[in-house]
Design a protein around this nucleic acid. Structure first.
Length: 391
DNA sequence: AACTTCGACAACCGCACGTCT
DNA sequence: AAGACGTGCGGTTGTCGAAGT
């Protein structure tokens, strides 16, 4: 135990900061005077070229330290203070989709820095792990006000930026719940006209995302994050539950643009590990998406007819109707999650999606009681987990 | 009162990547 | 082509006050 005098002297050393490096660059907490110098420097010379700060301003800080200080504390329009509940909710959802991509998450939270979000998440993670709570589930049910935001969406005459809390599927659910007409073309047209996803600066609306021949993914092409199913179940809320399944191993996607040929059964190795229930109520069942994400591959038969206890290659075809096609188109904009007990190895195609959706809004697709028990056990089940990103 | 734990925040470090020379 | 340099990102550690024991 150090005597008080010694402790105080160490404290004063800390307050001054440590020094390191050949040129005795200062480390540790920034002082107000240093901040003022850095602000003045950026005012004069603009951002960037951080290593020049020390040369030109006499500030004894390395470029990295200057950049960090500016980005996290000094730059204008920074939001300070605790995260709002809306921001917290968004962080949870973004993390479910992106993983530890703090900078990309920060891009969706104006005025917030990656460091802030990272700190928040790590603290939250620790707290919840200690409490034995799920990482992603929130205390309150989300999307409870979907209809309201949808109305705002549709009544707007200009494109609206929507964040990841409006996934294609949740939007679909919103659209259906507010306008339960059988035809989905109007929904899609509405989405195209009013919706603008923003991620990686991709404006999907420009490319008519749900009808173009190549649907852009809302992620950079070289890194496709995989969200957890926990997220899916949570985000889609009570109206639509879905599972999206792909390989248990990271899969190399040859190219999003590749393969316009018709697939054959040899293009896939599929080992179904689930039993198919009564699908009479299913808005969409499950199947393989084609390479372009336009439609499910339908030249396979049902597992009842096809598998017969063998590992016969093939794919399940569900009930396909116009809604399914639209739904799958929507799903094409949604990244994949993983069910480890299934083995699906796409060879040629962009990705494989199995999907089961149950829509209990409107009149046309109301589920029947007999199908209420059909459940793939996706709601927070421990058999689901998040896979690392695909590169 | 002393100590520990916790949480929020700040800062550092190593690495990767792109650009420039 | 290769190395230097600048920058950004994510992991990790440090700091400090509040709360708990």
């Amino acid at each position: 135990m150090a005597p008080d005098g010694l402790k105080d002297s160490w404290k004063s050393v800390r307050s001054i900061g440590a020094w390191s490096g050949r040129h005795m660059l200062k480390k540790g907490p920034w002082t107000a005077a240093e901040d003022a110098i850095l602000k003045e420097y950026v005012k004069k010379h603009g951002e960037g070229n951080w290593n020049a700060v020390q040369r030109n301003s006499g500030l004894m800080r390395c470029g990295k330290s200057c950049r960090l200080r500016w980005a996290n504390h000094l730059r204008p329009n920074l939001k300070k203070g605790a995260f709002s509940s809306e921001e917290e909710r968004l962080i949870v959802e973004l993390h479910a989709m992106l993983g530890n991509k703090w900078a990309r998450m920060a891009a969706q939270l104006p005025g917030r820095t990656d460091n802030e979000i990272k700190n928040y998440w790590n603290t939250r993670l620790k707290r919840r792990q200690r409490a034995g709570l799920s990482i992603y589930h929130q205390e309150q049910q989300i999307n409870s006000n979907s209809s309201t935001s949808l109305q705002a969406l549709l009544s707007s005459s200009h494109p609206i930026n929507v964040s990841y809390n409006n996934t294609p599927l949740s939007l679909f659910a919103m659209l259906k719940s507010s306008n339960p007409q059988p035809s989905t073309s109007s929904y899609l047209s509405n989405i195209n006209n009013h919706l603008k996803f923003f991620s990686d600066n991709r404006d999907l609306s420009l490319n008519s995302p749900f009808s173009s021949s190549l649907t852009p993914l809302p992620f950079s092409s070289n890194s496709l994050p995989m969200p957890s199913l926990e997220y899916n179940a949570l985000n889609f809320g009570p109206n639509i539950s879905t599972s999206i399944i792909t390989s248990t191993q990271p899969v190399e996607f040859p190219s999003i643009q590749q393969s316009e040929t018709t697939p054959s059964s040899s293009d896939y190795e599929v080992e179904p590990q689930f039993s198919r229930g009564d699908n009479s109520d299913l808005l969409g069942d499950f199947g393989l998406m084609d390479k372009l994400g336009q439609k499910p591959v339908s030249n396979f038969t049902t597992p009842e007819n096809n598998y017969q206890g063998t590992e016969k290659k093939g794919c399940v075809e569900g009930i396909m109707n116009p809604v399914d096609d639209d739904l799958f188109s929507l799903l094409d904009n949604f990244p994949l999650a993983v069910k480890p007990c299934s083995r699906l190895v796409p060879r040629k195609w962009q990705y494989i999606v199995r999907c089961r959706c149950r829509c209990n809004v409107g009149t046309e697709y109301r589920p029947t009681e007999s199908t209420a028990n059909v459940d793939w056990n996706i709601n927070g089940s421990s058999c689901w987990y998040t896979m690392p990103s695909i590169y």
